[in-house]
Design a protein around this nucleic acid. Structure first.
Lengths: 205, 205
DNA sequence: TAAACTACCTAACGTTCGTTAGCAAATTAT
DNA sequence: ATAATTTGCTAACGAACGTTAGGTAGTTTA
């Protein structure tokens, strides 16, 4: 959990994020990583203690960023609707800024070993809980549709977290435009405002 | 792509799905699998050709199920809103019935090697496209809010695909209840119908 | 200018991996 | 009754893995 000093180490962590995302943690060998840097595998160990340190750096740095972004929102005096809007937008800002790291954070964290795995899960649960509390309070105030809290929280976060799979910052929309459209979609729904044609009653399959 | 005959092989594929989901494809060894079945690793090869065959079976069987479920919907004479409702519900039915397989289908497919990987990606793209066409037509008809097609499709599917991470069929809601609530959430949105308090304009961060 | 540090190297280690060969017992089909 | 199939075993293979030991230039610090 110490600060990263050397620029070479930063390179390694960023490259690791890219490879871990594309191929998966276990499918990425230290020799893979080294080859992409133009060095030998053993040379990596001048900069890092072991492979897991790379994963650890990625996962915990992104987790800290996400938690920080919630701090700012909760400390202000906003309505729950505004809090949710900001939370969505800052969540998207973090993960679109670091798409590789975000995907590793979301999918590869499970390859952490104890005690780091438990610490990570605790951190992630805290983030989900704070998101969930905003939703709960908004539901209680009548600002949000009332529904199963856990379901809504995880569905919402999953929708947000899928952004790096299709979003490329270099073409089409920029991150803020995505944020605005996605916020609108999730909050207002897919149905056209003019014509509420959906039955909302599910026919049996 | 041939039919599975032996029941022992079915056991193996199901167990593999469970382990691949929990630990990942590469982190699951043939010795892991064998131990859970109470046999030696080499004995697995009386039933399967190699490790990848397990992954192949999981991914392609689920893909076929999902595509079939769309066939039925497209063939009927339904409005696009109804088609979407049915598509959401049958998608959820498939993935809640096979949550382990679904997570492997979604996350571990990338460990397939060619030519299976390309075939899988083609299958998955076809499924996404057919989902997308329903959305496109619904937007053109004015039944759905107009927004970036690709974004809406992938966000919607990601929201649906997160269901196995929190849904346990044995407690709380059953699959059909989840389906109804989730359909409503995605189509009508999170905002309370009574009070449209959201600005839908994003403040800068 | 000497000491310390950075950034890499070669060589090799012990371990685990997926898989094969060859065999044996039990069950099922003819 | 016998042939075929199913289901498992032991032993072992070559390859790939993460990592360590020990060394060497070049660069920075004291």
């Amino acid at each position: 959990m110490e600060a990263i000093k050397s620029t070479r180490k930063i390179e390694m962590v960023q490259l690791a994020a890219s490879l871990f995302r594309k191929k998966g943690y276990f499918a990425t060998s230290m020799r893979d990583l080294a080859n992409h840097l133009g060095i030998e595998a053993a040379s990596l160990y001048s900069h890092i203690r072991n492979k897991e340190e790379l994963l650890e750096n990625i996962c915990f740095r992104l987790g800290a960023e996400l938690l920080e972004s919630l701090d700012r929102i909760e400390s202000g005096s906003l309505t729950y609707s505004q809090q949710l809007e900001f939370a969505i937008q800052s969540h998207l800002a973090v993960i679109t800024r670091s798409p590789d790291e975000a995907q590793v954070f979301l999918l590869e964290y499970k390859h952490l070993t104890e005690p780091r795995l438990s610490a990570f899960i605790k951190m992630r649960k805290e983030y989900e809980l704070r998101f969930r509390i905003i939703l709960r309070q908004g539901m209680q105030q009548g600002e949000f549709r009332r529904a199963d809290e856990k379901m809504v929280t995880l569905t919402l976060l999953s929708a947000l977290n899928s952004t790096p799979t299709w979003f490329r910052s270099d073409k089409g929309m920029n991150a803020e435009q995505v944020s605005a459209v996605l916020t609108d979609l999730l909050i207002q729904g897919l149905a056209s405002p003019a014509t509420p044609v959906f039955s909302t009653i599910n026919p049996s399959l």
